[in-house]
């Protein structure tokens, strides 16, 4: 029996090589997906309100902000880095949009563009601090930016929220297309773009190379520093995009927005199967991770669990999800199917 199996494997390496499906990778991302399905099944049984179109769209809307931030975070984690500044970057770029558009009556288009550029610029600075000042770990540079951006957001607003955006600015976060929230469609489009970016462009492949082995990557001609700067710039940019969606949801910009969002994003990325050591992770895993977080929050709400207890539950899920990953990795390493 076994003999025939091994003979086949030896005789037909081409089919194995050209077949599009990589089972290991599939199993890897399926792990989190399986969790999402299981979680949804349990909630469907526990609460009659869970599996309704209305509620599902709710989840889609609630997951949008975290998803958008997470995909940027994924890039940094793929390079074995981290971006702690995303929550503050979100806050600062939204309050700048608010000041420009509401207080200074700049055209909404220009105001939004300026906010997005600011997010990208803050990310760019993170990248420069890391690569040019050679700060030892992005934990440090982004921790610094996190405080700076938060402080600036408080200063420029005098620590008070600003509201009254025109609808055009709220569109992404507030509008619906039929039953589907526009913010969720934005998420899907963004994720498809990032998927193509990571798998089909040289820069995308370089990101994996830098995370896998920076020295080997450099000696293979990968412009490691440029790749890192791009990664942090995109992360900052995505935080600002998420901020724009948040504006639509709450019709206000407030300087304390986005507190702790970095941790939700890290959680989504890690639940989605990315490795803190870099080089491993996919956008679809991250999307599933963000959805798991949203479903969990939503489900616990439906079940009437208190917010404090929800936090405990999410902590447990993070540990559980990563532990399952560890087990799966170990099984793969043992070389057994």
């Amino acid at each position: 029996m076994l003999k025939t199996v091994s003979e086949k494997a030896v005789k037909e390496p081409d089919i194995q090589a050209e077949g599009k499906i990589n089972w290991k990778d599939l199993l890897y991302s399926l792990g989190a997906l399986l969790g999402l399905i299981l979680l949804s099944a349990v909630l469907t049984v526990l609460s009659p309100d869970f599996l309704t179109l209305n509620n599902l769209m709710n989840i889609a809307r609630q997951s949008a902000i975290n998803s958008l931030i997470s995909v940027g975070m994924l890039l940094t984690i793929l390079t074995a880095g981290i971006d702690l500044s995303v929550g503050s970057v979100l806050a600062l770029s939204t309050v700048v949009m608010a000041i420009l558009i509401i207080k200074l009556h700049v055209s909404p288009f220009i105001g939004v563009l300026a906010g997005l550029c600011l997010g990208a610029f803050l990310g760019f600075m993170n990248g420069i601090l890391l690569t040019k000042l050679h700060l030892p770990h992005p934990f440090i540079s982004t921790l610094g930016t996190m405080n700076i951006a938060r402080g600036l957001a408080l200063i420029v607003t005098g620590a008070t929220p600003i509201s009254g955006f025109p609808f055009s600015v709220q569109f992404l976060g507030a509008a619906f297309w039929g039953p589907i929230p526009v913010s969720f469609m934005l998420v899907l489009v963004v994720f498809i773009i990032f998927h193509l970016f990571l798998t089909r462009t040289t820069t995308g492949r370089y990101i994996y190379a830098v995370g896998g082995n920076p020295e080997a990557a450099r000696l293979s001609g990968v412009p490691v520093e440029r790749v890192l700067v791009i990664v942090y710039t995109l992360s900052g940019f995505m935080a600002a995009v998420a901020g724009l969606v948040l504006i639509g949801r709450v019709n206000a910009a407030y300087p304390l927005a986005g507190l702790g969002y970095e941790l939700d994003a890290i959680a989504a990325v890690i639940i989605g199967g990315a490795s803190f050591f870099g080089g491993v992770g996919t956008v679809w895993g991250t999307l599933v991770g963000a959805l798991i977080m949203a479903v969990l929050r939503n489900g616990l709400n439906l079940l009437g669990v208190s917010a404090d207890l929800q936090t405990v539950a999410i902590g447990a899920v993070i540990i559980g999800a990563v532990y399952i990953d560890v087990l799966r990795q170990r099984a793969i390493n043992k070389g057994r199917r």
Binding site: R200, T202, A209, N213, E215, A216, A217, L219, G221
Partner: peptide, 29 residues
């Protein structure tokens, strides 16, 4: 191990890493 390979990536990835630009068409691989 330390300077030549990205051990966690596929053989195909490693072989084409240094010469990857030649596979670019319209910005995509």
């Amino acid at each position: 191990k330390t300077q030549g390979l990205i051990l966690g990536e596929s053989v195909a990835f490693n072989i084409t890493l240094a010469g990857i630009k030649q596979f670019r068409r319209w910005g995509f691989l």
